[in-house]
Protein backbone atom coordinates (compact mmCIF):
# COMPACT_ATOMS: atom_id res chain seq x y z
CA UNK A 1 0.00 0.00 0.00
CA UNK A 2 1.21 3.45 -0.84
CA UNK A 3 -0.14 6.92 -0.45
CA UNK A 4 -1.99 8.12 -3.51
CA UNK A 5 -2.91 11.62 -4.56
CA UNK A 6 -5.76 11.66 -7.05
CA UNK A 7 -5.80 14.39 -9.70
CA UNK A 8 -9.31 15.47 -8.73
CA UNK A 9 -8.00 16.35 -5.27
CA UNK A 10 -5.26 18.57 -6.61
CA UNK A 11 -7.34 21.70 -6.55
CA UNK A 12 -8.07 21.14 -2.86
CA UNK A 13 -4.35 20.59 -2.27
CA UNK A 14 -3.49 23.90 -3.88
CA UNK A 15 -6.10 25.58 -1.70
CA UNK A 16 -4.81 23.91 1.48
CA UNK A 17 -1.24 24.86 0.75
CA UNK A 18 -2.23 28.39 -0.01
CA UNK A 19 -4.24 28.73 3.19
CA UNK A 20 -1.28 27.24 5.07
CA UNK A 21 0.70 30.23 3.82
CA UNK A 22 2.62 28.59 1.00
CA UNK A 23 2.91 30.14 -2.44
CA UNK A 24 2.15 27.44 -4.94
CA UNK A 25 4.27 27.36 -8.07
CA UNK A 26 4.21 24.99 -11.00
CA UNK A 27 4.59 24.70 -14.76
CA UNK A 28 2.30 27.27 -16.39
CA UNK A 29 1.71 27.77 -20.10
CA UNK A 30 1.48 31.43 -21.01
CA UNK A 31 2.27 33.42 -24.16
CA UNK A 32 3.40 30.32 -26.00
CA UNK A 33 5.87 29.11 -23.43
CA UNK A 34 5.83 26.94 -20.31
CA UNK A 35 7.70 28.13 -17.24
CA UNK A 36 7.50 27.64 -13.47
CA UNK A 37 5.12 30.34 -12.30
CA UNK A 38 2.76 30.98 -9.36
CA UNK A 39 -0.59 29.24 -9.71
CA UNK A 40 -3.97 30.16 -8.26
CA UNK A 41 -5.58 26.80 -8.79
CA UNK A 42 -4.76 23.37 -10.18
CA UNK A 43 -6.31 24.39 -13.50
CA UNK A 44 -3.33 26.71 -14.11
CA UNK A 45 -0.90 23.80 -14.11
CA UNK A 46 0.48 22.41 -17.36
CA UNK A 47 1.69 18.96 -16.36
CA UNK A 48 1.52 17.18 -19.70
CA UNK A 49 4.57 18.73 -21.32
CA UNK A 50 7.75 16.64 -21.27
CA UNK A 51 9.34 19.43 -19.29
CA UNK A 52 8.82 23.19 -18.99
CA UNK A 53 10.60 25.22 -21.66
CA UNK A 54 12.37 27.28 -19.03
CA UNK A 55 14.27 25.68 -16.20
CA UNK A 56 13.55 25.84 -12.52
CA UNK A 57 16.71 27.77 -11.68
CA UNK A 58 15.11 31.18 -12.20
CA UNK A 59 13.02 30.65 -9.07
CA UNK A 60 16.24 30.54 -7.05
CA UNK A 61 18.57 32.52 -9.26
CA UNK A 62 16.49 35.00 -11.27
CA UNK A 63 17.78 36.49 -14.49
CA UNK A 64 18.09 39.84 -12.74
CA UNK A 65 17.79 40.75 -9.08
CA UNK A 66 18.66 43.75 -6.91
CA UNK A 67 21.47 43.36 -4.37
CA UNK A 68 21.80 46.89 -3.08
CA UNK A 69 20.39 50.37 -3.44
CA UNK A 70 22.66 53.35 -3.06
CA UNK A 71 22.31 57.07 -2.80
CA UNK A 72 25.05 59.64 -2.50
CA UNK A 73 24.36 62.96 -0.80
CA UNK A 74 26.69 65.81 -0.05
CA UNK A 75 27.94 64.40 3.23
CA UNK A 76 26.78 60.79 3.22
CA UNK A 77 26.70 57.65 1.18
CA UNK A 78 23.74 55.45 1.95
CA UNK A 79 23.60 51.83 0.99
CA UNK A 80 20.74 49.51 1.61
CA UNK A 81 21.15 45.79 1.09
CA UNK A 82 18.37 44.04 -0.82
CA UNK A 83 17.74 40.44 0.10
CA UNK A 84 15.30 38.32 -1.86
CA UNK A 85 11.67 38.42 -0.81
CA UNK A 86 11.16 35.24 1.13
CA UNK A 87 8.20 33.22 2.21
CA UNK A 88 7.46 29.53 2.09
CA UNK A 89 6.82 28.12 -1.36
CA UNK A 90 5.91 24.78 -2.83
CA UNK A 91 6.81 23.88 -6.38
CA UNK A 92 4.40 21.28 -7.66
CA UNK A 93 5.25 19.34 -10.79
CA UNK A 94 8.97 19.92 -11.13
CA UNK A 95 10.78 17.48 -13.36
CA UNK A 96 13.47 15.32 -11.72
CA UNK A 97 16.15 16.84 -13.99
CA UNK A 98 15.24 20.33 -12.80
CA UNK A 99 15.19 19.30 -9.14
CA UNK A 100 18.55 17.54 -9.58
CA UNK A 101 19.96 20.68 -11.16
CA UNK A 102 19.28 22.60 -7.95
CA UNK A 103 21.01 19.94 -5.85
CA UNK A 104 23.97 20.05 -8.23
CA UNK A 105 24.33 23.80 -7.73
CA UNK A 106 23.94 23.76 -3.92
CA UNK A 107 27.64 23.06 -3.18
CA UNK A 108 28.64 25.74 -5.67
CA UNK A 109 26.54 28.44 -4.03
CA UNK A 110 27.62 27.32 -0.57
CA UNK A 111 31.30 26.71 -1.15
CA UNK A 112 33.45 29.65 -0.03
CA UNK A 113 30.58 32.01 0.63
CA UNK A 114 27.03 31.00 1.42
CA UNK A 115 24.98 32.83 -1.18
CA UNK A 116 21.95 34.18 0.70
CA UNK A 117 20.08 34.85 -2.50
CA UNK A 118 20.19 31.17 -3.35
CA UNK A 119 19.88 29.57 0.10
CA UNK A 120 17.17 31.85 1.50
CA UNK A 121 15.02 30.64 -1.34
CA UNK A 122 16.22 27.05 -1.19
CA UNK A 123 15.43 26.80 2.53
CA UNK A 124 11.90 28.03 2.08
CA UNK A 125 10.94 25.92 -0.91
CA UNK A 126 9.42 22.45 -1.01
CA UNK A 127 9.98 20.67 -4.29
CA UNK A 128 7.43 18.12 -5.43
CA UNK A 129 8.68 16.39 -8.55
CA UNK A 130 6.74 14.20 -10.93
CA UNK A 131 8.55 11.24 -12.47
CA UNK A 132 8.65 11.34 -16.25
CA UNK A 133 6.57 8.91 -18.26
CA UNK A 134 7.41 10.70 -21.51
CA UNK A 135 10.72 11.78 -22.95
CA UNK A 136 12.03 13.01 -26.25
CA UNK A 137 15.20 12.54 -28.27
CA UNK A 138 16.94 15.33 -26.37
CA UNK A 139 16.50 13.92 -22.86
CA UNK A 140 19.78 12.52 -21.50
CA UNK A 141 19.40 12.16 -17.73
CA UNK A 142 20.45 8.51 -17.83
CA UNK A 143 23.81 9.48 -19.31
CA UNK A 144 24.41 11.62 -16.20
CA UNK A 145 23.71 8.83 -13.66
CA UNK A 146 20.24 10.24 -13.12
CA UNK A 147 16.90 8.88 -14.29
CA UNK A 148 13.31 9.87 -15.11
CA UNK A 149 12.47 9.14 -11.46
CA UNK A 150 15.57 10.52 -9.74
CA UNK A 151 14.89 11.75 -6.24
CA UNK A 152 17.93 14.05 -6.12
CA UNK A 153 16.91 17.55 -5.08
CA UNK A 154 13.24 16.63 -4.54
CA UNK A 155 11.35 16.73 -1.24
CA UNK A 156 8.55 14.57 -2.59
CA UNK A 157 8.48 12.40 -5.70
CA UNK A 158 5.19 11.61 -7.39
CA UNK A 159 4.86 8.64 -9.72
CA UNK A 160 2.01 8.90 -12.22
CA UNK A 161 -0.53 6.10 -11.92
CA UNK A 162 -1.09 3.80 -14.84
CA UNK A 163 -4.72 4.95 -14.91
CA UNK A 164 -3.56 8.54 -15.37
CA UNK A 165 -5.83 9.57 -12.49
CA UNK A 166 -3.22 10.53 -9.94
CA UNK A 167 0.16 9.82 -8.46
CA UNK A 168 1.85 7.55 -5.95
CA UNK A 169 3.39 9.75 -3.27
CA UNK A 170 6.91 9.19 -2.03
CA UNK A 171 7.85 11.63 0.73
CA UNK A 172 11.61 12.01 0.79
CA UNK A 173 12.53 14.75 3.25
CA UNK A 174 11.17 16.26 6.46
CA UNK A 175 10.30 19.37 4.54
CA UNK A 176 8.28 17.29 2.09
CA UNK A 177 6.55 15.34 4.86
CA UNK A 178 5.65 18.61 6.59
CA UNK A 179 4.09 20.06 3.45
CA UNK A 180 2.13 16.88 2.82
CA UNK A 181 0.78 16.87 6.38
CA UNK A 182 -1.37 19.82 5.33
CA UNK A 183 -3.02 17.66 2.70
CA UNK A 184 -2.90 14.34 4.59
CA UNK A 185 -6.63 13.83 4.50
CA UNK A 186 -6.74 14.35 0.75
CA UNK A 187 -4.43 11.38 0.22
CA UNK A 188 -5.70 7.83 -0.12
CA UNK A 189 -3.99 4.58 0.79
CA UNK A 190 -4.03 2.33 -2.23
CA UNK A 191 -2.28 -0.28 -4.30
CA UNK A 192 -2.78 1.21 -7.73
CA UNK A 193 0.14 0.56 -10.02
CA UNK A 194 2.40 3.33 -11.24
CA UNK A 195 2.92 3.85 -14.95
CA UNK A 196 6.30 2.79 -16.28
CA UNK A 197 8.82 5.63 -16.33
CA UNK A 198 10.07 6.96 -19.64
CA UNK A 199 12.83 5.01 -21.33
CA UNK A 200 15.77 7.33 -21.87
CA UNK A 201 18.59 5.66 -23.76
CA UNK A 202 22.14 6.26 -22.57
CA UNK A 203 23.78 8.50 -25.12
CA UNK A 204 27.33 8.87 -23.86
CA UNK A 205 29.70 7.71 -21.17
CA UNK A 206 30.11 10.76 -18.92
CA UNK A 207 32.99 9.22 -16.93
CA UNK A 208 34.98 8.44 -20.06
CA UNK A 209 34.30 11.98 -21.27
CA UNK A 210 35.53 13.50 -18.01
CA UNK A 211 38.69 11.45 -18.24
CA UNK A 212 39.31 12.63 -21.81
CA UNK A 213 38.69 16.22 -20.73
CA UNK A 214 41.16 15.90 -17.86
CA UNK A 215 43.95 14.99 -20.25
CA UNK A 216 45.81 18.28 -20.85
CA UNK A 217 46.74 17.16 -24.37
CA UNK A 218 43.11 17.41 -25.40
CA UNK A 219 42.77 21.04 -24.42
CA UNK A 220 44.19 22.15 -27.74
CA UNK A 221 42.56 19.36 -29.75
CA UNK A 222 41.26 20.25 -33.23
CA UNK A 223 38.04 18.68 -32.07
CA UNK A 224 36.92 21.88 -30.31
CA UNK A 225 37.01 23.90 -33.48
CA UNK A 226 35.28 21.23 -35.53
CA UNK A 227 32.44 20.62 -33.09
CA UNK A 228 31.67 24.31 -32.56
CA UNK A 229 32.15 25.74 -36.03
CA UNK A 230 28.45 26.54 -36.43
CA UNK A 231 28.03 28.02 -32.92
CA UNK A 232 26.68 31.55 -33.29
CA UNK A 233 27.61 32.57 -29.76
CA UNK A 234 24.21 33.24 -28.23
CA UNK A 235 23.41 32.46 -24.63
CA UNK A 236 20.35 30.31 -25.20
CA UNK A 237 21.96 27.06 -23.94
CA UNK A 238 23.40 28.64 -20.82
CA UNK A 239 20.28 30.57 -19.90
CA UNK A 240 17.94 27.62 -20.31
CA UNK A 241 20.32 25.32 -18.45
CA UNK A 242 19.18 24.39 -14.95
CA UNK A 243 22.77 24.31 -13.65
CA UNK A 244 24.57 27.17 -15.45
CA UNK A 245 25.06 29.73 -12.74
CA UNK A 246 27.37 32.49 -13.95
CA UNK A 247 26.38 36.03 -13.18
CA UNK A 248 27.58 39.56 -13.59
CA UNK A 249 27.19 42.46 -11.16
CA UNK A 250 26.11 45.78 -12.61
CA UNK A 251 25.30 49.17 -11.16
CA UNK A 252 22.32 50.85 -12.76
CA UNK A 253 21.51 54.44 -12.13
CA UNK A 254 23.22 57.78 -12.15
CA UNK A 255 26.01 59.30 -10.10
CA UNK A 256 23.83 59.88 -7.07
CA UNK A 257 21.30 57.08 -6.85
CA UNK A 258 21.14 53.64 -8.22
CA UNK A 259 20.78 49.98 -7.78
CA UNK A 260 23.28 47.17 -7.88
CA UNK A 261 22.00 44.13 -9.71
CA UNK A 262 23.01 40.53 -10.14
CA UNK A 263 22.35 39.49 -13.75
CA UNK A 264 22.77 36.23 -15.58
CA UNK A 265 25.90 36.07 -17.70
CA UNK A 266 27.04 33.51 -20.23
CA UNK A 267 30.40 32.02 -21.14
CA UNK A 268 29.14 31.93 -24.75
CA UNK A 269 29.50 35.70 -25.00
CA UNK A 270 32.74 37.25 -26.20
CA UNK A 271 32.38 39.93 -23.55
CA UNK A 272 32.35 37.35 -20.75
CA UNK A 273 36.14 37.21 -20.49
CA UNK A 274 37.05 40.50 -22.14
CA UNK A 275 39.76 42.29 -20.16
CA UNK A 276 39.80 46.04 -19.66
CA UNK A 277 42.92 46.12 -21.85
CA UNK A 278 40.93 44.71 -24.76
CA UNK A 279 42.70 41.35 -24.57
CA UNK A 280 40.36 38.39 -24.53
CA UNK A 281 41.79 35.08 -23.31
CA UNK A 282 38.84 33.26 -24.90
CA UNK A 283 38.88 35.08 -28.18
CA UNK A 284 37.18 32.40 -30.30
CA UNK A 285 33.80 30.73 -30.09
CA UNK A 286 35.46 27.31 -29.97
CA UNK A 287 37.40 28.35 -26.85
CA UNK A 288 34.12 29.44 -25.29
CA UNK A 289 32.36 26.17 -26.11
CA UNK A 290 35.35 24.23 -24.77
CA UNK A 291 35.07 26.22 -21.54
CA UNK A 292 31.40 25.33 -21.18
CA UNK A 293 32.09 21.63 -21.61
CA UNK A 294 35.25 21.70 -19.47
CA UNK A 295 33.43 23.51 -16.71
CA UNK A 296 30.53 21.09 -16.64
CA UNK A 297 32.41 17.82 -17.01
CA UNK A 298 35.92 18.49 -15.76
CA UNK A 299 36.36 21.50 -13.44
CA UNK A 300 33.01 21.26 -11.66
CA UNK A 301 33.19 17.51 -10.91
CA UNK A 302 36.83 18.03 -9.89
CA UNK A 303 35.68 20.38 -7.17
CA UNK A 304 32.20 19.19 -6.27
CA UNK A 305 32.21 15.50 -7.29
CA UNK A 306 29.28 15.76 -9.71
CA UNK A 307 28.86 16.79 -13.31
CA UNK A 308 27.27 20.18 -13.73
CA UNK A 309 24.56 18.77 -15.97
CA UNK A 310 21.32 17.02 -15.11
CA UNK A 311 20.52 15.91 -18.63
CA UNK A 312 17.40 17.98 -19.31
CA UNK A 313 18.53 18.49 -22.91
CA UNK A 314 17.25 22.06 -23.20
CA UNK A 315 20.59 23.17 -24.67
CA UNK A 316 20.12 20.98 -27.72
CA UNK A 317 16.33 21.25 -27.86
CA UNK A 318 16.47 25.03 -28.27
CA UNK A 319 19.81 25.58 -30.01
CA UNK A 320 19.28 27.71 -33.13
CA UNK A 321 22.01 25.77 -34.95
CA UNK A 322 21.38 22.28 -33.58
CA UNK A 323 24.37 22.03 -31.26
CA UNK A 324 24.40 20.97 -27.63
CA UNK A 325 25.99 18.91 -24.93
CA UNK A 326 24.69 15.56 -26.19
CA UNK A 327 26.48 15.58 -29.51
CA UNK A 328 29.68 17.01 -28.07
CA UNK A 329 29.86 14.33 -25.40
CA UNK A 330 28.93 11.61 -27.87
CA UNK A 331 31.87 12.67 -30.01
CA UNK A 332 34.16 12.84 -26.98
CA UNK A 333 32.99 9.35 -26.01
CA UNK A 334 34.15 8.15 -29.44
CA UNK A 335 37.48 9.96 -29.11
CA UNK A 336 38.08 8.48 -25.67
CA UNK A 337 37.74 4.88 -26.85
Amino acid sequence: MTKILYTDKLDNCVERWRSAGLSVIGPVRNANITAYRPVGSAADLELSQILPDRSIKELFFPQTEPMMRYSIKKDAINTEECLPPVGPRIIFGARPCDASGLAIDDPLFGWDYKDEYWFNRRNETVIVSIACTKSDEFCMCTSLKLSPDSTKGSDVLLRPLESGKGWQVEELTDRGREAFKAIAELLTEGAEAAAPTAVVAEKFDADACSEWLRNPENFESRFWKEISVRCIGCGSCTYLCPTCHCFDIQDEGDTFTGIRRKNWDSCSFALFTMHTSGHNPRSTQSARWRQRIMHKFNYFPGKFSANSCSGCGRCTRQCPVDMGITETLQEISKLSQ
Binding site: A31, A35, T238
Partner: peptide, 10 residues
Protein backbone atom coordinates in the same frame (compact mmCIF):
# COMPACT_ATOMS: atom_id res chain seq x y z
CA UNK B 1 9.71 36.52 -21.41
CA UNK B 2 12.98 37.79 -22.90
CA UNK B 3 16.08 36.45 -21.15
CA UNK B 4 18.56 38.55 -23.13
CA UNK B 5 20.35 35.52 -24.49
CA UNK B 6 20.81 37.53 -27.70
CA UNK B 7 19.99 34.51 -29.87
CA UNK B 8 18.00 36.90 -32.10
CA UNK B 9 21.05 39.06 -32.60
CA UNK B 10 23.49 36.21 -33.09
Amino acid sequence: KCIKCYACRQ
